[in-house]
Design a protein around this nucleic acid. Structure first.
Length: 314
RNA sequence: GGUGCCUUGGAUGAGUGGCUUAGUCAACGGUCUGCAAAACCGUCUACAGCAGUUCGAAUCUGCUAGGCACCU
């Protein structure tokens, strides 16, 4: 099956969604390794759009191999936005992504009717499509303070405090989930208001139409693609990439499938073959999580991709 | 031929009469509005087979099957 054959169902999706006098954002999404990058390039060329990346890890410029980021050659073919724009120590969030993408879209829609956003970061996509509540960013001091309190006092005490400061959120949050409890408390402290008061869950209206195209494959095929892609990454120097990043291992950007496991190898605690299996497994788990998230989104128009030919490497 | 030991759910591995379905891993399902390739939750109720002892057995007894070790 040629790429043109794969492109046509997407193009008909685009044409069906076309609306006179209305700007349209095409969102191409799907689990990791499903084949978004290649199809996004074809689709972008066909509709004359650049590609706006929606992969939260490809934003970091030092992770090209481990995140299967678009290559220089691919970026020459089609201009990309939000690829390699962050350094490993930069703070980033879905909310910032929302703001920056919206700003970019406003500019690009002046010269384009249809734009392409492509990626698999569920929350980033939702942030662009539905919006995220306007919650203040936590200051570094607050963050440090809470981290320390967590270490000294433990989660149960922080949870008890959250119960006083924001009983509504306390009632619904998972009390085992440290991240969420800590974040809610950070907001309460920094703003003097309950976290819940910021959570309006408003679905923001966008000044353009959104058409989501989801790519999916049979699970066995997807898993096979994941496995061989991990092997390919290692052949391409993934371990060296991780070695260069070792000094930054505690940065959030490196709390990422692949790097975590390779750091164990560099520490000497894991053998490479073992780590490789873990990377494959964790990538499969990630792909399943993506599918679970996407399956709730009824606005996605799914395209089932044909099984990968085993004769094709990569 | 004889003697001794072993046999637990997909894998690993505790448990020696009743304080539950140990635990771990894998697999599967799910949650999700600010670090999201993150963080978190749930499910999989097994004890080689058969017959006994007992109020009650994975746990005791016997036999059968399979495996391991040693002996003549």
């Amino acid at each position: 099956m040629s790429s043109a054959d794969l492109l046509s169902p997407m193009l008909s999706e685009v044409h069906n969604s076309a609306h006179p006098n209305q700007k349209t954002l095409i969102v191409l999404l799907g689990p990791t390794a499903v084949g978004k990058t290649d199809l996004a390039l074809d689709l972008a060329e066909a509709i004359g759009s650049p590609i706006i990346n929606a992969d939260s890890r490809q934003l970091y410029r030092d992770l090209p191999i481990g995140t299967a980021a678009p290559t220089a050659e691919q970026q020459l073919r089609v201009p990309h936005y939000f690829v390699g724009t962050l350094s490993i120590t930069d703070y980033y969030s879905a909310a910032r992504y929302e703001a920056e993408v919206l700003k970019l879209l406003e500019e690009l829609f002046r010269t384009h009717d249809t734009l392409l956003l492509s990626g698999g970061s569920m929350m980033y996509i939702d942030a662009v499509c539905k919006g995220i509540d306007d919650i203040p960013t936590i200051h570094e001091e607050t963050r440090t303070m809470m981290r320390q309190r967590l270490a000294e006092e433990g989660l149960p005490r922080l949870a008890a405090e959250l119960k006083l400061l924001d009983p509504e959120y306390f009632a619904k949050v998972d009390l085992h989930n440290t991240q969420r409890i800590v974040h809610a408390l950070e907001i309460c402290y920094q703003t003097g208001r309950p976290f819940t008061s910021f959570r309006t869950a408003t679905h923001k209206e966008r000044p353009f139409r959104i058409h989501k195209i989801g790519l999916r494959r049979e699970r066995a095929d997807l898993f096979q693609r994941i496995n061989s892609r991990v092997d390919q990454m290692l052949a391409d120097g993934f371990l060296d990439e991780a070695r260069r990043l070792l000094p930054y291992r505690n940065e959030n950007a490196l709390n990422t499938v692949g790097y975590k496991e390779l750091f164990q190898v560099l520490d000497g605690t894991w053998e490479l073959p073992f780590a490789t299996e873990r990377i494959k497994k964790n990538t499969r788990v990630y792909a399943k999580k993506q599918m679970t998230w996407f399956s709730r989104d009824t606005s996605i128009n799914w395209i089932d991709l044909p099984n990968t030919q085993t004769s094709l490497s990569l």
